[in-house]
Design a protein around this nucleic acid. Structure first.
Lengths: 152, 152
DNA sequence: CTAAAAGCATACTAGTACTATAGACTTTAT
DNA sequence: ATAAAGTCTATAGTACTAGTATGCTTTTAG
């Protein structure tokens, strides 16, 4: 039940991109190196990840001197679920309860399969959180915690 | 975010063992072959899985002719979470929010890490379901669905 | 004693995850 | 026009995991 490094790094990077964007209001551009350094990620690995997010339409980029990546849409309109699915595929723990990649799981009767019923609940619980949490929600929560802890 | 085959098969087998136990009241003994055949699992692979569950104290076994496996405790007292953790390890999607296998995730400040906060929610949602669903709950739900669909 | 069953170790294969390397292409500043 | 800064693309390698398979040992009922 684990998030891959790919998924982890991608989510971290997107959050990093959303953070200054929240403050300034405008989409903030950052370079791969910059993000990699801040989040302690191999720059080359991150490059691949950001590219995938770009091809999925969640990021835009600017080439050349002074270039970099920036969010394709306001942070409020990008959910963790969207990012997750691009990088780690379906949310469902087992294919027979997947919305986006259904496949029969081989049990004799799917309708009455107890495991399927339980895993369906799990899928829904995960999707509920991921699909209803936007990057803006995350950064908002971050700064709320920061405030609570005082300073920093 | 996927359940491994190991986990899937193990859960299926435990449910299979719980099913007749529910009806008869007594712990029901089944052989590896029997379960493997019914659930379409490689018997040798299943052997390893059941052994792990036995070593974890969730199953008991009897060797020799007429032997087999049976639940170590009543189905009501075995949760999906217990089984899952034996076979697939911690529930948490990322180590820094794991209860049973915490490890720092490398973010500069864990307290205010947005990803960590969100993944903490996910972990709790999953654990809530898995730890509050017993094998008895599963078989009960199965037969309820069966009844609803009429017959079979 | 023998056959049926679990127990145990190991080894093989295929896939995936992560990282690393190398270079091509694109834009911008000068 | 050129060089620098940056993205884009492909490939390769290493290590780990999943799943399967093989073979032998131990226990027990009859």
């Amino acid at each position: 039940m684990r998030l891959s490094k790919r998924g982890e790094y991608g989510l971290r990077a997107m959050i990093a991109l959303a953070e200054p964007a929240e403050k300034s209001g405008a989409p903030q551009m950052m370079q791969i190196k910059e993000i990699a350094l801040r989040e302690q990620i191999s720059a080359k690995f991150l490059e691949q990840i950001l590219l995938a997010l770009k091809n999925a339409g969640l990021l835009h980029s600017k080439m050349g001197v002074g270039g970099g990546y920036y969010l394709a849409r306001p942070a409020k309109e990008i959910t963790l679920g969207q990012i997750f699915r691009v990088l780690d595929g379906p949310v469902a723990p087992i294919k027979c309860v997947s919305q986006m990649a259904y496949e029969p799981c081989g049990c004799p009767d799917e309708e009455t399969c107890g495991l399927r019923l339980a895993m369906g609940d799990v899928r829904n619980a995960i999707a509920d959180i991921l699909d209803n949490t936007s990057l803006a929600d995350v950064t908002k929560r971050q700064s709320a915690v920061r405030k609570k802890l005082g300073v920093k």
